[in-house]
């Protein structure tokens, strides 16, 4: 029994070595990327201790006194803690679902178009993603401004409806934010789906067409099932960032308007507003660590669930 295991191990190791030699050029190609990843993502990791320190420049990062969990307290201190956590998670869940559905729909439509038209539409849909959040906030403002806005002046007024003070009425904002976010990110999100769809074997569709399948049936029975691993992967990645929010969207687009806070305040904006004047590095490090930690746990557990039901689609 013992001998059998060692030989098995040895042969496995030998096989691994051969495999490694075969892949050396690939490893070399990956080297710059890995170096970047190491410098950018791993080297600053020791800085995490800042979240547990009482930072003093004279003593340095590692010499500073320990603060225990004091730096985290402010995240959970008030009733706002519940509001910001709820906003961050609910908005992200809505974004994940709508983004996935809409991005796939757009990708399928784009894949059906001829090459020339496709390029035009794809660029047009991608464009909003490249616009900075500050500019987006003013585009939105052009629509929603109380005195000069498009909606109040050109839509509501001709209909005889009194103008709405958009930036003080919070009931509209969950919808406004979702629409803006969708408009802004859909072009980017559909790229990966589109490139996957384009890579599918045309033979499936030809065979289905010969058997008399309609377009809808082709999409339902061929495209979606083939897309499943991609959908699972992108969704898992999105879940990892469920505790982060797009700062520009939640801070700039509502123009930092106080009356809207209960529906626009997320973890990122709360931390930004609270620490803007305090300038406390350790408290912001604590917020960052808390967000990544929850994201990490969520990705691991989501992946575990996926592996249980469909081990091929799981990330690791």
């Amino acid at each position: 029994m013992e001998i059998a295991t060692t030989t098995k191990n040895r042969s496995r190791r030998k096989k691994g070595l051969v495999q490694f030699k075969k892949c050396i050029p690939l490893y070399l190609m990956a080297l710059p990327g890995l170096a970047y990843l190491f410098i950018n993502n791993y080297m600053p990791l020791p800085g995490i201790v800042l979240a547990f320190k009482n930072f003093n420049a004279r003593k340095g990062i590692f010499g500073s006194d320990w603060a225990g969990l004091d730096n985290f307290k402010y995240l959970f201190h008030t009733q706002d803690a519940w509001v910001i956590t709820r906003n961050t998670i609910l908005y992200n869940i809505v974004f994940i679902i709508l983004n996935t559905v809409c991005a796939i729909a757009v990708a399928i439509i784009l894949a059906e178009l001829t090459a020339k038209v496709k390029k035009f539409y794809q660029s047009a849909i991608l464009l909003p993603f490249l616009i900075s959040a500050v500019i987006v906030s003013y585009l939105v403002f052009a629509f929603l401004s109380t005195e000069n806005g498009f909606i109040n002046n050109s839509i509501l007024e001709p209909l005889g409806i009194e103008g709405i003070s958009w930036y003080t009425e919070k009931m509209y904002w969950p919808f406004i934010l979702v629409i803006v976010a969708l408009w802004k990110t859909i072009g980017y999100n559909c790229i990966i789906y589109l490139s996957t769809i384009v890579g599918f074997d045309k033979g499936y569709y030809e065979a289905a067409a010969i058997d008399g399948a309609t377009k809808w049936q082709q999409i339902k029975k061929i495209t979606i099932p083939l897309l499943k691993p991609t959908i699972v992967m992108l969704t898992l990645l999105a879940i990892g960032r469920i505790f982060y929010s797009d700062f520009g969207l939640f801070y700039q687009v509502p123009q930092n308007s106080g009356p809207l806070f209960s529906v626009t305040n997320t973890i990122d904006t709360y931390v930004y507003r609270g620490l803007l004047e305090l300038g406390d590095i350790t408290m912001s490090a604590a917020a960052g660590l808390y967000q990544s930690f929850v994201g990490f746990v969520l990705v691991l557990s989501a992946n575990m669930i996926v592996r249980k039901y469909d081990s091929d689609s799981a990330l690791f």
Binding site: D70, Y74, H77, D80, F261, N265, Y270, R273, E277, M283
Partner: peptide
């Protein structure tokens, strides 16, 4: 902690 909450 109180300061950040009050600022908000």
């Amino acid at each position: 902690t109180e300061y950040t909450a009050l600022t908000n």
